[in-house]
């Protein structure tokens, strides 16, 4: 507890006068309570008294009777080599470090007294280090010292910040989910027009080129008119399923709306491979699609462009040309694919 643990009664030379010894002891008892991390040095620079908290920091090394400069390194003011240097006026705030492990650093304030001096120390910003090195409790600090309040605040604020951090994480998760929704066609789960545009922009700059297929269903309107929108939606989901199965990982299948779809194939421009893919898709979509008791009959026309035909690749032109190839396929009997060659 502050107020106990005062050490040593030697070195009364610090205070002069008839009642010197009694006064010195009285003052130390006061300082032990008000400044439990103070110490008193004599003319020679030896420690003749230390407050209870400072004493507790050095159970083995000790303080009493040792030269002050043997215990502490003086970081500031610079160039202190003797106690006489320390005693200079205008010394400002002292920066001290224990010479031995754990090399705790202190702020200090020195006041000459008699022929010696009183130094009051504080951990300053090294308090967090000190808490790791020493088992400190609030009784180690003067009741008026704000250190304990500051530690309370630091701990309370980090708890509050932790809660805010968790909230941020939850919000970010929600944002990612919303963004994913914003890029997805809700009926089919394929990419939507916005997602397609994002990926095209990325591909425009990518090495290795890419292929783009524009698909349009044949006779889809008839399914809608004859069997209703539920059947139409069912067909669109079936088409999405087929497209997802026929493309590679890393390719993109997007629904532009209605019965229009676009497929993107990064790093693929080989006509034979593209023909294979388009052919399989058309074959599968020509199969009747059961819906309840009814059979939905559609097929699909495809226009294909590859980026290698354009220097530099121009997405606007490629989309328009794929559309032209698609209409050529429609004109030439539907259920087939056509390449566009610029």
């Amino acid at each position: 507890m502050a107020g106990q643990g005062a050490q040593g009664t030697t070195g009364a030379t610090v205070l002069c006068g008839a009642d010197g010894i009694g006064q010195a002891e009285g003052l130390r008892a006061v300082l032990d309570v008000l400044c439990p991390m103070h110490l008193v040095i004599d003319t020679a620079g030896d420690v003749i008294h230390a407050g209870p908290t400072l004493t507790r920091l050095r159970p083995a090394g000790g303080l009493l009777g040792l030269p002050f400069l043997q215990i502490f390194d003086v970081d500031r003011p610079r160039g202190v080599r003797s106690v006489a240097d320390l005693m200079q006026p205008e010394r400002g705030t002292l920066r001290l470090v224990f010479r031995d492990s754990p090399h705790t650093s202190f702020k200090g304030c020195l006041v000459p007294m008699g022929e010696g001096a009183v130094l009051n120390l504080s951990f300053g910003m090294s308090i967090l280090e000190a808490l790791k090195d020493y088992a400190l409790s609030s009784s180690d600090f003067a009741p008026t010292d704000m250190t304990v309040e500051m530690l309370y605040l630091a701990e309370a604020k980090s708890a509050a910040i932790e809660e805010s951090r968790k909230l941020n994480l939850r919000l970010r998760g929600a944002m990612v989910a919303v963004e994913a929704q914003a890029l997805t066609d809700t009926l089919t789960g394929l990419a939507n027009r916005r997602a397609l545009e994002q990926r095209l922009t990325r591909l425009e700059r990518a090495h290795g080129g890419f292929a783009l297929m524009h698909l349009d269903l044949d006779r889809f309107k008839a399914v809608n008119d004859r069997l209703g929108h539920a059947a139409g939606d069912h067909v669109l989901r079936h088409v999405a399923q087929v497209l997802s199965e026929e493309i590679r990982i890393g390719d993109t299948a997007a629904r532009l709306g209605g019965d229009e779809f676009v497929l993107l194939f990064p790093a693929l421009q080989d006509p034979a491979q593209l023909q294979g893919i388009a052919g399989r898709i058309i074959d599968r979509l020509c199969q009747p699609i059961p819906h309840g008791a009814a059979q939905c009959l559609i097929s699909c026309s495809v226009g294909i462009v590859v980026s290698g035909d354009y220097t530099p690749p121009d997405i606007g032109r490629m989309m328009a040309d794929a559309d032209r190839a698609l209409y050529q396929a429609k004109h030439e009997g539907r259920g087939c694919y056509r390449f566009f060659r610029p």
Binding site: L128, A130, L131, K132, L136, E155
Partner: peptide, 9 residues
Amino acid sequence: RFELGQRVG
């Protein structure tokens, strides 16, 4: 037990 420094730092 309660030490000031259990969590800080």
